[in-house]
């Protein structure tokens, strides 16, 4: 049997300490308990899984992103939805490149909806990452009329495949000037 040196014993003890701490922090994470230092080191929470999947309150609505333009003559275009979700297919079980975009848009929208529910004022919301990310996206990636001057976006919740439920407006942005030079 191989004998372990003092250094290797210390390394082994450190490993047990690391694994034990990691597991304990993961347990705490399930109860939304998280030490403050982790907010600084791992703000994106890469290291600790949260496993309360779809519970206790599962998401039961789809959030839709709608965009409209204000034209040079002051009129506005109809709201147009930016399509995100795709119908399910067998291929997606292996290859689903659109999933990150779907999930990212869903996360950004949820983040913004959370700020709205907290009754943060528009001055605060307009400076947040989810608002700026959506504004950046609708300004550059959604089609605009040639004579459009400003853009506005709207988040609407719906019952998805359940078409009996009325859609519900979650948030309407301000109008923001479009960068017309790049178009």
């Amino acid at each position: 049997m191989r004998r372990h040196s003092g250094a290797s014993l210390a390394a082994e003890a450190a490993l047990y300490g690391l694994l034990g701490t990691w597991f304990a922090l993961t347990v705490g994470q399930q109860f939304k308990k998280r030490p403050r230092f982790l907010e600084r080191v791992d703000p994106g929470n890469v290291t600790l899984p949260v496993s309360t999947f779809f519970a206790p309150r599962p998401g039961t609505t789809d959030t839709h992103l709608l965009v409209r333009d204000e034209l040079l003559d002051g009129s506005t275009t109809e709201w147009a939805e930016y399509p995100v979700s795709q119908d399910r297919s067998l291929r997606q079980m292996v290859w689903h490149p659109n999933r990150r975009r779907e999930k990212a848009l869903c996360d950004v929208q949820n983040d913004l909806a959370f700020l709205v529910r907290q009754d943060k004022g528009p001055e605060h919301i307009h400076m947040t990452v989810p608002y700026l990310a959506l504004l950046n996206f609708v300004s550059h990636r959604c089609p605009h009329a040639p004579d459009s001057r400003r853009v506005q976006f709207l988040l609407v919740a719906s019952g998805g495949h359940d078409e009996t439920e009325e859609p519900d407006v979650l948030f309407a942005s301000d109008f923001h000037t479009l960068d017309t030079e790049g178009r």
């Binding site: 519970a55 206790p56 998401g59 789809d62 959030t63 998805g160």
Partner: peptide, 26 residues
């Protein structure tokens, strides 16, 4: 977490989740 949820216990979570296009299936 599901056991602690009334909508999971009464089963209404299932149509609720699956009606969405994000995580569901028509």
């Amino acid at each position: 977490a599901k056991l602690a949820s009334p909508v999971w216990r009464d089963g209404t979570a299932i149509p609720g989740i699956f009606r969405t296009a994000t995580y569901g299936d028509r």
